[in-house]
Design a protein around this nucleic acid. Structure first.
Lengths: 179, 179, 179, 179
DNA sequence: AAATAAACGAGACGGTACGTCAGGTCTTAGA
DNA sequence: TCTAAGACCTGACGTACCGTCTCGTTTATTT
């Protein structure tokens, strides 16, 4: 039987890895995606720059990993299933606007949009992470993935336009979507 | 009677102003918002850097002005009014996806999203420029501005997710929105 | 008889000219020759930059004019003539070291050296202004212009080397020169 | 026992250091102290600007180091000692005026004067480098440092005044100084 | 146990772009 | 037609980060 022969020498330091993504998350939330620098992450994590470049090809990849590890977005961004689709979506939308209207989180949304628009990998992870599309499609029926895109998209546009994100918005948005 | 006294000395050079926004537009479309540098704009426009810094506070402001002057987006991004609201919106959506699926224009969309997300002024101008919200609201009735946000938002999300932007998408999206 | 007809239009403003050389003198003494800028002179004199460039080819020329007008150096830098050459030179040297050891005047000397070394016109005016060479040569006899150069040069070198400029130095210097 | 522990990480690049002072020396002699720019040095030395700013606080400091390394002035600017003080000084003076009357070297002298007058560190190095003061004082006797200052100063003044620097000047200067 | 080799923290390196300052020229309105 | 004001292009300033590379140290796996 083939036993996977490990290399000689030290292995990747899990401590450093976690320090890096923690530092990246902190700085991302504090200063946004632009203004986030590798040097600052290295300094914040008490880590050499090379340790970052050795394992990640770009700052986008670091942010993607932060997302995968759940350090930037809460886990609960998926609708419940009580049987009443409309009510479930309403609750989900209200949770989201509640989260986004909290201090600092609107900046977070903008930064995530930037990160996703600049880098396809981040977009991919965001897609999976936020991945409500399929859930919604499953509930609403015949693969109307556009419903999910319209809901999430409306939130993004509203936020970028500087509009208020509140429950009234959530309700009116849901009314605008045919189910 | 108050006669507005003009200040002494030379006035702002309109030639330089136009050279700058033209150069900025060119480079924006060629390389995207990130990778767009003030130095490159100055060089392309055969202009001193200081002439840019004298009149614009940031590259975002330059892009905002490019948008205002119609250098980055075509003017016709507003629905017609034939009386048949659904048909008008369908035509409008098809035009948009047609435009975005043309070579290079998806990159343009991403860059505009980044610029708008990074800078509130750009977002404001994009809002006015793309400003279909009110038009749609007027047509569809009782100020459902969320309809416009959902339509535009869905396009953005679809694009960022890397999905195909075609007529089928446009039609299915319209079906998903209650009118 | 033909009276020299003056040109039509305004003549050179004597007010501006004096404001400019006064401002230049002030700034020269305050900040030195390097660190002296045309823009600062124009601002200090409440004068347009062009008014300076119209009449002087360089900042060195302005300083040369300041020297000619006696704004930077006192007039009395010429030995008396009591008949006792040695005593007269001693008094002259002592006056100079007294002047130079006063606060700020050592900086003045350095700045003048810089200005003279950078620009031949300034050197020329300094030569005339400080022009003790011929006076000394006349007194000491058979055109020993090198005596003057050695005396002034020793002062400059002593100052640049950061040495003390006092009466003892003056006396010892005079002793070192054969008369 | 104390073993001097070297710090971790890369050491200063001696190659870069020498390239920088060589470039600085070249440009100094070609264009003078004013007109010498850090950017030009960096470009000439094929070095990043930051590498210069990391190790030198100013261009004056670079020139000071060039002097210390013997890149700007020949080493032989010190009188011999044959026993005949007057003859030795005469030879020394003649060598100096010979050197200075060579093409370009008068400009070099002026630039060095400017550099020394603008910056105390350069003056200090020049003082040590040119340091004939003590040598002369030792020879001539009872610490008459002023003799050296007068000799060197006379040369400087003669040069700045635009006078000719030749053997006749050297001889007459020596005659003017009491030994 | 010794030798080997990769990962580590630190940080110097050649670069690019930043935003500012001053240079010297040119343009405008007012005196 | 000269002045004050100031916009123009140019180019150097000193700083921040980039991504690469080079140290001396630490650590884990062979020999």
């Amino acid at each position: 039987m083939l036993t996977e022969r490990r290399r000689r020498g030290p292995q990747r330091s899990e401590t450093s890895r976690q320090a890096i993504i923690a530092a990246a998350s902190t700085l991302f939330q504090k200063h946004g995606y632009d203004h986030l620098t590798i040097e600052a992450i290295a300094a914040e994590a008490h880590v050499g720059k090379q340790t970052i470049y050795r394992w990640w090809p770009s700052k986008a990849a670091i942010i993607a990993e932060c997302l995968s590890e759940g350090l930037l977005l809460p886990d609960w961004f998926v609708p419940e299933n009580t049987g009443d689709v409309r009510a479930d979506l309403r609750t989900w939308l209200r949770n989201i606007v509640l989260f986004l209207s909290a201090s600092g989180n609107e900046t977070l949304l903008r930064s995530l949009v930037i990160a996703g628009a600049e880098n396809a990998d981040v977009a991919q992870v965001l897609n999976e992470r936020l991945g409500v599309w399929q859930v919604i499609a499953d509930r609403v029926g015949d693969d109307t993935i556009e419903v999910g895109e319209a809901l999430v998209g409306a939130i993004v546009i509203r936020s970028l336009r500087g509009g208020t994100l509140d429950e009234k918005f959530a309700d009116r948005l849901l009314d605008a979507i045919a189910l």
